[in-house]
């Protein structure tokens, strides 16, 4: 049942049908499992509490009865409920008017969960991806834009979730570990993906031997051994792979990548900074040269009257540049590579 247009999407997202009105006490109500306390600013909550203390709950909350239990779960009105709980602790027991509706469908419940998560300060991507997977399966919808509208997630978030849904369950489980100290962040799979693809291209023999999961397992092992200090460091590998151009550099890079995958103890930056940092130094130097020339040009010095001091300064520069050029002359790097770098 793929959704055709946004109107249809809004229909799916409709959570709350109409129902019967009841007066409930806080003991009859089950708070949300999504810990909405995280969502509420204390000041507006205090104002609402003061208002309820004075006038009671004027707008009914929306609840449904949990099958098999006598309690009601809240669909809408968690703030009002929280205020009543606080007031009960102060000794002011209030009854809460509640619109009792049918339990929400699976999709409606999930969309409610998305709306809660969208307001949360920090939330994990993997559980979100799993829920998105259910939404996609139930609705037969894979279009990123429509899913974004439906869930409130941004399109890049949807894309990232799709990547997570494509990985092996074994790895999904690693990102769902209850203990945050052993949990592999969901971003690990997103950032490591290009590196695994790179391994296929640059170290085909190793890739053939280990297979995709074998390479990924080695990276996981490395991460667990804290040799990947941040998953962002995978980008360093990609950056290095783009930088190396000379054949011997490429060979060196491939050998390093091979060693990086097979040797758990080799830390990411220690392995690849060499390729990246060197290039950065060169590009910084090129920028400095260009800026130097441009500033001198802007100063229009050709007809300067007081020349002695300027001439001496320029000679100093000349001496330094000559000495540097002589050191760089006859470099091992082939001419083509040097000229390419200069263009960059």
């Amino acid at each position: 049942m793929a959704l055709k247009n946004l109107k249809e999407i809004d229909k799916v997202a409709d959570v709350v049908p109409s129902g019967a009105l009841k007066q409930l006490s806080i003991k009859d109500i089950k708070p949300s499992t999504n810990n909405p306390r995280l969502l509420f600013d204390p000041q507006p909550l205090k104002e609402l509490r003061d208002n309820i203390r004075q006038h009671g709950v004027l707008v009914p909350i929306t609840v449904y009865q949990i099958r098999g239990q006598t309690k009601y779960a809240i669909l809408d009105g968690e703030r009002r409920y929280r205020c009543c709980v606080d007031l009960a602790q102060e000794g002011k027991e209030l009854s809460i008017p509640a619109n009792v509706v049918e339990p929400p469908s699976k999709i409606a419940g999930l969309l409610y969960m998305f709306s809660i998560h969208n307001f949360r300060e920090a939330w994990e991507l993997m559980p979100t991806a799993l829920s998105l997977g259910v939404v996609m399966n139930e609705l037969g919808e894979e279009d990123t834009e429509k899913l974004s509208h439906l869930t409130g997630l941004s399109e890049p978030q949807i894309e990232r979730c799709k990547k997570l849904l494509a990985i092996d369950e074994k790895y999904q489980k690693m990102s769902l570990e209850p203990d945050p100290n052993t949990r592999i962040p969901a971003n690990f799979w997103i950032e490591s993906g290009p590196v695994v693809d790179l391994a296929k291209k640059e170290v085909p023999k190793l890739y053939e031997k280990l297979g995709k999961t074998g390479v990924l397992d080695r990276l996981v092992e490395k991460y667990q051994a804290k040799k990947i200090r941040s998953v962002i460091h995978f980008r360093r590998i990609m950056e290095a792979s783009e930088i190396v151009e000379a054949p011997e550099d490429k060979t060196k890079f491939a050998a390093r990548l091979n060693e990086y995958i097979t040797n758990t103890d080799l830390e990411t930056r220690r392995a690849f900074d060499e390729f990246v940092v060197d290039n950065r130094r060169i590009s910084n130097a090129i920028n400095a040269c260009e800026e130097f020339i441009s500033r001198l040009e802007r100063a229009k010095l050709a007809f300067a009257l007081d020349r002695d001091e300027l001439r001496s300064a320029l000679k100093k520069v000349q001496v330094y540049i000559n000495s540097l050029l002589s050191k760089l002359a006859g470099s091992d790097a082939p001419e083509g590579a040097n000229s390419d770098r200069a263009k960059r």
Binding site: T33, N34, Y64, R67, Q69, K106, L110
Partner: peptide
Amino acid sequence: SRDFMSQHLVGTFA
């Protein structure tokens, strides 16, 4: 354990 787990429940459960 329950709070962590229940966040991942899909659907309504007693």
